[in-house]
Design a protein around this nucleic acid. Structure first.
Lengths: 114, 114
DNA sequence: ATAGATCGCTACTCTTTTCGTAGCAAGCGG
DNA sequence: CCGCTTGCTACGAAAAGAGTAGCGATCTAT
């Protein structure tokens, strides 16, 4: 994000992530969606648009403060947008969700093992 | 996590996540890997085992306190284990990483657009 | 039109999480 | 034995989040 560096480093596994070498896409992404409720929000917007209050109810213990902060961040990142019918995913957001979606099944299998 | 509830609800997109209905696998997972550095740690352990200090260096600004906390959590979750050659992913951890891996490519495309 | 409910969101205080640094016990090399 | 790295804990400061209250705008029913 405008860090001035000419090249974006390839963020393969094993490459340093977050911190020392900032600006790597995977780092930026982890920093964005690795915050409280961020993934929960994406998950809840996946199937349909939601109002602020609805989203709040679905993210039970999320205070309106954080919820609004996350929504701002996700909107700034171009993943979420505000529409006439509430908040919804952008095309980018939908693409990201597609990548995230298998986590649902993985989590279920994992929970059985736990 | 031992919430005593008899049934684990199906965590499809659109279902309430985190909070009101606790105990859903996807919620537990989001709560676990949606904390600072958690995904960064998994990412850095993906290709090889790492020592504590090495991991710390790769997660630049992560303090040893948080790093150790995350490692404990991830170990308790059965995703990370401590070996003779440092920390590494368990089989479960590797499976999770496989699901997470496409995020790397997605993040690169996304960064170009940003 | 008007009273009431609901909406998106901000303000504010209190608690939890994370940061950042210092440092200790244990292992290893020379 | 001495210096060096390693895993990890302690602790105070800063940042993030929770929880509650409530304001102006809109929607709903009468």
């Amino acid at each position: 994000m405008a860090d001035g560096s000419s090249r974006i480093k390839i963020p393969r596994p094993g490459e340093p992530v977050q911190g020392s070498q900032t600006g790597q896409p995977i780092m930026v992404l982890f920093d964005l969606i690795g915050r409280r409720w961020a993934m929960g929000i994406l998950w809840n917007l996946a199937d349909q648009n939601r109002t602020f209050r609805d989203l709040q109810a679905r993210c039970g213990s999320a205070s309106p403060t954080v919820l609004n902060t996350r929504l701002k961040e996700l909107r700034a990142a171009g993943l979420v947008e505000k529409t006439a019918t509430g908040y919804g995913l952008t095309n980018d957001g939908r693409k990201l969700f597609k990548v995230l979606e298998p986590l649902g099944n993985w989590a279920m299998d994992w929970a059985k093992r736990l």
